[in-house]
Every structure is written in structure tokens, then in C-alpha cells.
Nucleic acid binder design. Structure first.
Lengths: 356, 356
DNA sequence: CTAGAGTGTGGGAGCGCTCCCACAGCGCAT
DNA sequence: ATGCGCTGTGGGAGCGCTCCCACACTCTAG
């Protein structure tokens, strides 16, 4: 027998006012109180210029008095806008994220959306079944746009979005000719910076440990490594390239192999902090001092970079800003309905600590 | 001039079928095709038992043929259910989370919700203004329930939820007599386990570094420390208690003070991994070997625990399961509309590594 | 003066669904 | 035969909004 909801508890207080019920006020009631028609109230709410000053004020007063809040469902029903966007994260990727990544993306997206009255829906996709459900979901037009965190080249989700023609923005891209809008960090530039730092420090044999090369990020970081070497007139030596998978264990394995192949190496650029952490452990176990004998640089500037011994030099990507930018691009795309592809590359930065 | 959406691309293919338009099919069209009334289709969709087998089959066939998906807005408009829940995270708390915390909570919540067709809305609240907006938002009944991640005793959000009488579940609780439903880890038990481990290991002077005592988690962990000592017949000595704020820097400060006050200490239980990491740094700088001279245990089993030197023994809380449980409780609470308070305490676990 | 173009306004129609009432059809007890 | 209940069904009403048409009223030009 209890009430489902409280009265709005507006400036005039709750149930007191006598006549009016405690249910949520509707646009119609606002119109009645303001002495205008429904159309006018709607126009005021939606910021139409075609309303007289007098009417606008009356309506606004009525809205304030009643504590009126528009019913989103009713609006959606007629406009078929939902005023919400989805952030879609394939669960598999989740394991690859450098640690505060996810929170930072969310934080950025949410910050940008806070200005608007867009809702943020979070959708984690953990398997094929859920991928199909997502497809159905999106086809049913339940969101105005999609932010997709996806890194693998063979992820089917981007193509789905493409064919659905729903406004969407990717974090990262599948390749150079990514047809969808995307935001990503300057991975190549960051890697180049890191390797130049190693060279400038006097390293003669700079190795690298890469991520899986079916990911554009991994390719780009390897590309930056290569470019820096070439710019310095050094040969690109495949023996100095260790393939791994972004994980700590992968980093350890790759480092051991590298050490065996090229015991003379004196610098390692790792495409992730986790791999760098693994590499540092192996180096230490092999009796090499970091950074004196071997300098190490990671990528991501994640939490672990601050907690290795010695603290790790790493390339920082502006993840929160990526989130913010993604949201902004998506809002633009939704607003204009025109399918202009947008791409933003954000600068990376070398955070120098003690490992290099 | 471009189409807003693609046809459903159902089994029968898109625009081909001639008569029917490419717009999303409505319940009415399903009814027509199935040769029944709207009511019957609605009953089938909502799983009412009062439908003949024959009608049900006809309707299901029609749904499949048309690729029909119910319009959520229309349903919401009449039922005033939204089929969505919000996960509310005060931004301030975000900084206190041990690192994969946020992702793990989300992952758990999302996993539980995936079974249902509930949507997950994510709301980050970063300041007073947004707190007010959230209030308005919730008053407008835009979600069926709320999951709140909040740890501070003086957070106003829980009280707001309480007075709004909206189904809600907290991660953590404000105190013993938390009136809202909540899920939390057995912090006291975990702390007790950790301290017992230290004692069993032979530590004679076990110190602790606590979090801010206006947080129930911090209190509970301190309580567990105290209890373990008392059970072992040791006195609770305030000199061995260092107050900090869950941060690494706080851990360092507290450790220095502790070391000064009680140079004889040989074990430290820290209420967070970050503080433990800070403490370990200070111990090393002071020339104390961990774990030989001073054993250290952290709390959270976060990423950093695996990356300190030596790797840290820490108390693990089942965060993903907390998320899952929160979602489950919330669904129950929404389903029954009865405001029965639910509380679940999940067991913690000591992960033994090298620091103790 | 009238015609015409603009401005501001009210309110009908209708978005796609659920709710609920009315009613048909059946079996069973009276 | 009549009455009653129960099951399954169709469809009207209506949720709260936006869209858009019609209209009143103003102002300017002819």
C-alpha cells in the first residue's frame, strides 16, 4: 500500500498543495497552470525560438512550481530519438587493458556527456551469443549512437556497426583505412619518442617487445620503433624484435629469448608496461642492472609503471581525453546525421622515471 | 535523403517482400500476420499463460518472420517500468578504488544483467551540481533501481535513495545499521586472517596502517586487526596503529611514524595494497628487509600487490562476485516491490606471496 | 482600404504498447 | 432446459509527448 514514488519535493513542498495529485506532473498540467496550450509548453521545453517572452516566462514558472520533468519514454516514442548512447566493450579486450584504462575511458565519456542529457549505457559483450543480442539490440534502435572499444583487427563488431549505419566512434582503429570514426593515441609517435630516448641515452643495441601484430596498436608501436632506428641511421634488426602478447608472462618469455639471441642488448622498448615489468624481472634474474646495463621503457604509463623497481619510464596516452573526444565526436555525428568520418589522433608523452 | 535505419535483415531478407514497408514492424502488424488481435500478441510476448497453444505458435511465427522487436519506449510509457538500472559511482570514490575494482564490479553487474533484458546505465557523479541532477533524474523515475558504489559515511547519496524509496543496493555500507540493501566483503574477517597469519609466522609486534576511519571498510579492517590480537592474548597497543588514507603516500608517512615510535615492530598489516606498497618502500629505505625483519600484508590483492618487490601477501575480496550479487539483489528487490532489506557478506581470502 | 506575409498559438492526431473490459465458447452442476 | 464459472480472445482507451495544421493576430506593402 506504500506509494511508489515521493512527490517531487519541489520548492513548494510535497503533498500539501491540496488540489494537485502527487503523481508526476505532465506537460498538460504545466500548460493548464501556465494558461497556455500544450504546443507552447513543448516549444519552451525544446528551446524553440517561436515563443513570446510572456508565454515562455509563464511556462517556466509553471514548470518550476510543479517540478515538472519531461517523460523520456513519451518523447522517445514520438521522436524515436532515445537520447542515449552505448559504450560497448568486448569482454575479451578487457583483459588487455592497461589498468586504469577502462575507468579512464568511462570517466572521459561520462564527463563529456554530463553536459548534455544523454544517458550512457554500458554494454559488455562476452561471447558470440551476446554479440548477436547486441546486434538485435542495435537494430532495434535503442541507442542514438555507439562508442566501441575494440582493438582486434578481426573483431566483427565494427563491421556490424558499419552495416547498421548507426553513428559510432571507435577507440583505436582496425587499420589505416578504418571507415568508421575513431580516436586513438599516437602510438607510433610515442614509440618513436621512447626509442629516441634510449638512443640519446647511449644505448647501442635497442630491442623491442611487441604486442600481437593483429592489433593495430602493436603494429603502430613497432613501426615507431623502426622509424626511430632508421632516423638514427641504425639498421632494423629482426633479431632484436621479440613478439609477445601484451601480458607480463609474455614479456618474460620474449625477454628471455631476446637475451639469448642478443646478449649484447642494452635497451628494450616494450609495447606495454606489463611486458616491461616482466622483462625487468627477467633482466634482474639474469643479473643485468636496470637501467645501468639495460634501459627499459614501457607503454601506457599504467599503475604498474609506478610500482616496478626501479620505477618505469613509460609512454603515456591521454586515455581520459580519448574518452572525452570519442563522446564529442559521437554527439556531433548524431547531431548532423551526416555520415562524415572523423578521426582524431591524440599526442602521447614520455614519462621519464628511473628505468631509462 | 538517406534512410535512417536499415531493414531488420531478417531471415526473409530486407526490402524485397513487396507489400510490407521497411520500417520496424509493430505489434499490430504481427497481430495482422498471425491473424489474431493485439492483445494476444502482447500476451505471448509477455509470457502470459492465458494463450492457446495454437495462437502462441502463430504469433511466434509472425514475430520471427517480421523480425519483430518490441518498442521499449512504448512499453515504458504505459507500464512506467524502464527495464534499466543505474550504476552510480561518485567520482571522488573512484580515486580510492584498488585498481581493477571498478572494472570488476561492472563486469559482475553486467554478467548478472545479461541474463535479463535490463539495461545498465552508468552514472558518474563528480560534484554537487551533478548530485542534484542525479536526484532530479531519479525522481523522474528513469530507472527501476540503483546500484550505488559509495564508501564514505557522510555521502548524501544513500539517504537520497532512501527517501526516494527506489530499489537500491550499495557496495559496502555506511555502518552496522545500514537501512539500504548492501553487499560487502568480510573486511573484518580478512584483516583478522591477515594478522593471524603474521602472528603464526612468529611476529611479536604487529602494527597496522588503517584507512580513514570515517569509512566503514577502514573501521572493519582495524576491528579485525584488533580482534586477532585479542584472540591471541596480545594487548591492543595504540602506538602500533598508524592512521592513513589508503594512498601510497599515506602509507609511507604512517610507516615512518610507526618506525619511529616502535622500532621493534616486525609485522605490518596495511588496510590497502597501496599503503602496503608505500610502507615497503619506507622499510627498505630504513634498511629493514621484507619479510625477514618485517613482514607486510596488504588488502585488496590489486595489481600492485603482484608487482611490488617482494610480491605482496594480500587479502583478496571477490569484487566481481560483489557486482554480480548486487545486481541479483537489486533485481529481486525490483521484482517484489517489497522493501525488504537484504545484506550479503562475501568471504575474503588471504593470498600468500612473499612479503609475509 | 485590402492583400499578403509573417509571427505566435491551440489542439488534434498519433507514436506502439499494455491494461482491462466485454464477450464468445465451452464444460459442468443444477 | 438454465445457470454458472472458467478460458481465451479482440479491441477501445489511454500512457505523455511531438508534429503539424489551422487559425488569430500583427505588420507592411500596394
Amino acid at each position: 500500500m506504500s506509494q511508489t514514488a515521493q512527490p517531487p519535493a519541489g520548492p513548494l513542498g510535497g503533498a500539501g498543495a491540496g488540489g494537485r495529485s502527487s503523481a508526476r506532473p505532465t506537460l498538460e498540467e504545466v500548460a493548464a497552470l501556465a494558461g497556455v496550450g500544450r504546443g507552447t509548453v513543448s516549444r519552451v521545453i525544446n528551446g524553440s525560438p517561436r515563443v513570446s517572452e510572456k508565454a515562455r516566462e509563464a511556462v517556466q514558472a509553471a514548470i518550476a512550481e510543479l517540478g515538472y520533468v519531461p517523460n523520456r519514454a513519451a518523447r522517445t516514442l514520438v521522436t524515436s530519438r532515445t537520447d542515449s548512447v552505448a559504450l560497448v566493450v568486448p569482454e575479451a579486450e578487457t583483459r588487455l587493458f592497461s589498468e586504469p584504462y577502462f575507468s579512464d575511458i568511462i570517466s572521459g565519456v561520462s564527463a563529456e556527456l554530463a553536459e548534455t542529457d544523454m544517458q550512457l549505457l554500458l554494454i559488455l559483450v562476452r561471447n558470440q551469443r551476446e554479440r548477436e543480442r547486441l546486434s538485435a539490440y542495435l537494430t532495434a534502435q535503442r541507442v542514438d549512437g555507439v562508442l566501441l572499444v575494440s582493438v582486434h583487427q578481426d573483431d566483427p563488431l565494427p563491421s556490424i556497426l558499419e552495416s547498421l549505419e548507426i553513428p559510432s566512434v571507435l577507440a583505436g582503429r582496425r587499420g589505416d583505412l578504418e571507415p568508421l570514426s575513431y580516436v586513438h593515441a599516437d602510438n607510433a609517435g610515442g614509440a618513436r619518442m621512447a626509442v629516441r630516448h634510449l638512443l640519446r641515452r647511449g644505448c647501442r643495441q635497442v630491442a623491442t617487445i611487441t604486442g600481437p601484430l593483429d592489433m593495430e596498436v602493436a603494429q603502430a608501436r613497432l613501426g615507431g620503433y623502426r622509424r626511430a632506428l632508421e632516423e638514427a641511421g641504425r639498421p632494423y634488426d629482426e633479431e632484436l624484435v621479440g613478439l609477445a602478447d601484451f601480458t607480463e608472462e609474455g614479456g618474460r618469455l620474449a625477454m628471455r629469448e631476446l637475451l639469448e639471441r642478443r646478449p649484447d642488448l642494452d635497451g628494450v622498448f616494450c609495447a606495454s608496461d606489463l611486458m616491461a615489468a616482466g622483462a625487468m624481472q627477467v633482466l634482474r634474474a639474469a643479473g643485468r642492472r636496470v637501467p645501468d646495463q639495460v634501459a627499459v621503457i614501457g607503454f601506457d604509463d599504467s599503475i604498474v609503471a609506478r610500482h616496478t623497481d626501479p620505477p618505469m619510464t613509460s609512454v603515456r596516452q591521454p586515455i581520459e581525453e580519448m574518452g572525452r573526444t570519442m563522446a564529442r565526436l559521437l554527439l556531433e555525428e548524431i547531431a548532423e546525421r551526416g555520415r562524415a568520418r572523423r578521426q582524431v589522433v591524440l599526442a602521447t608523452e614520455l614519462v621519464v622515471r628511473d628505468s631509462a
